[in-house]
């Protein structure tokens, strides 16, 4: 490592000798982040490269051998109707879930933002669903969503509405999973809440003096000021939605003795079945890479579009 450091200044380029202290600081920094770097290299990047290799082979688990398959696993993706069906289900769910999660999380965050007394208690309470294990949540929702005896349909019946068969009617399967997802929206809510806290109060006061009502203040001040958090949440929730596994698996696939409607077959579940039920690792790896590409494309489009609407305060 060179013992010099080059710095551009208004007076021109100056070269400083790097002190021992700085080198020690840098070394300490690398040491501190090394657990993550090692973990990333082995368990993420390493696994990715391995799965890429496997996707071009017929991998045999018992013998740890792999025959070259060329593009056969990728071609098979388009021959298997369940791949496209599960992808369709997943995309449909994402389109339904993400906007609702954003709206619901923002609504909750705004409520919490206006709470003065006992704010900590309310924040804790609203965050609790995030801390609840998914299995426990699924068990509760399994009862809540029962078409005959579930609390949701009983509540609907009380106001004269005949509730659907949430977990059985193919048209209501994905909305039922969305409902369960909304229960765990508090992580998103916390990000919105943090963003709302950074919006200067004087902007609202000035707008109010100018006669702006609550709706106008929301669309003209709140929304632009938290657009960065909104953008981040949309991207992260979209990625999470496209990788949805546990909600659907726990509601429909945890019991191997019962069937599941086609509408509940999500992409990640089919990928799991291919890998760990059918030992079709090459095909499953190809599925994973297809999902990666889809997520990347969607994310890049979102980033491209998002940059037009996101307000970065520090860019002013």
């Amino acid at each position: 490592m060179a013992n010099t450091m080059t710095v551009e200044t208004t007076a021109g380029t100056r070269v400083f000798k790097t002190s021992k202290y700085n080198r020690r600081e840098a070394l300490a920094g690398y040491l501190f982040i090394s657990p993550w770097i090692v973990g990333f290299l082995i368990f993420t990047l390493g696994a990715m490269i391995y799965s890429l290799v496997i996707s071009f082979t017929y991998y045999q688990l018992a013998t740890n051998t792999a025959r070259p398959a060329g593009l056969a696993n990728y071609e098979a993706l388009f021959d298997d109707p369940k791949v496209m069906m599960s992808l369709g289900n997943t995309l449909f769910y994402a389109v339904l879930a993400v906007p609702l999660e954003i709206i619901f999380a923002l609504f909750l965050a705004m409520l919490l933002n206006n709470v003065r007394r006992g704010a900590g208690v309310f924040r804790t309470l609203y965050y609790l669903p995030k801390m609840t294990p998914a299995v426990a949540t699924a068990s509760v929702f399994f009862l809540l969503l029962n078409g005959n005896q579930g609390a949701i349909n009983k509540g609907l019946a009380a106001i004269g509405i005949q509730g659907p068969q949430w977990l059985l009617d193919p048209n209501w399967v994905k909305p039922s999973i969305v409902l369960m997802t909304l229960w765990g929206v508090s992580g998103t809510m916390v990000i919105f809440l943090a963003a709302l806290k950074t919006v200067p109060r004087d902007l609202y006061e000035v707008a109010q003096i100018d006669g702006a009502g609550p709706v106008r203040r929301f669309f003209s001040i709140t929304l632009p000021m938290i657009s960065g958090a909104m953008f981040f949440n949309v991207i992260v929730l979209t990625i999470a939605a496209l990788q949805t596994f546990d909600q659907a698996y726990l509601l429909f696939y945890r019991d191997t003795g019962t069937g599941a409607p086609d509408a509940s077959l999500f992409y990640a579940i089919y990928l799991f079945q291919q890998a760990f039920r059918q030992f079709n690792f090459g095909f499953a790896a190809a599925m994973a890479w297809l999902l990666f590409l889809i997520i990347m494309i969607i994310s890049l489009v979102q980033v491209k579009l998002g940059n037009r609407f996101v307000y970065y305060e520090s860019e002013r």
Binding site: F43, T44, A47, M48, Y50, S51, L52, I54, Y59, Q60, L61, A62, T63, N64, G228, F231, F232, I235, V236, I239, A240, L242, Q243, A268, L271, F272, A275, F281, A284, A285, M287, A288, W289, L291, F292, I295, M296, S299, Q302, V303, N307, Y312, S314
Partner: peptide
């Protein structure tokens, strides 16, 4: 800030790929 968002996006997307791994050994 944009770079960080892009990095977060890419990082989260990577996890899609780790769903499928394997190991050595077997009989």
């Amino acid at each position: 800030t944009k770079q960080m968002l892009l990095a977060a996006t890419a990082g989260a997307a990577l996890f899609a790929l780790t769903a499928c791994g394997g190991g050595g050994g077997g009989g």
